[in-house]
């Protein structure tokens, strides 16, 4: 029998470990991301909602205490606010890492955060 530097068994072990590492890396970065929505009032986090676990919650906050934010089916959105322009409600549903909506008159911000790196650093608007 010929002696090799690396045997078949060794190759199998290497392949198995590499495959495992790659799989765990892919799983961690590309799926099952742990998405958390943070609700800020006047610059402070007042509530966090786990969107990945489809946590359902209704949060009432704001300077006038009349701004309503709802989390449902892994999405979070402003349902109503006493502000004049309703920009917050028009912002739509937030569901991915980096999504952001605010109600300026009521000093409320909702941000979605995930574990993986954002594709972009910031949005200019």
């Amino acid at each position: 029998m010929e002696r090799k530097l690396i045997t078949k068994t060794d190759l199998l072990i290497i392949a198995a470990v590499v495959v495992l590492i790659v799989i765990s890396f892919v799983v961690k970065n590309f799926s099952g991301e742990n998405l958390v929505a943070e609700i800020y009032f006047d610059g402070k986090v007042i509530e966090s909602v786990n969107l990945s676990q489809k946590e359902e919650k209704e949060i009432v906050t704001g300077s006038n205490g009349e701004t309503v934010i709802k989390a449902k089916d892994g999405k979070i959105f402003f349902t109503s606010s006493c502000c004049p322009d309703k920009v917050c409600v028009k912002s739509g549903k937030l569901e991915k890492n980096g999504d952001f909506a605010s109600c300026l008159p009521e000093k409320v911000v909702v941000k979605v955060r995930g574990e993986k790196n954002d594709n972009i650093d910031a949005i200019v608007y």
Binding site: S91, G92, K96, G98, N119, I120, A122, I123, V124
Partner: peptide, 20 residues
């Protein structure tokens, strides 16, 4: 290098149409 999304003027607040 910073990756900056340019807001899509026709989309909603989290929508960007290009990246600088």
């Amino acid at each position: 290098v910073f990756n900056v999304g340019i807001r899509n003027p026709l989309g909603d607040v989290n929508d960007y149409m290009a990246v600088l």
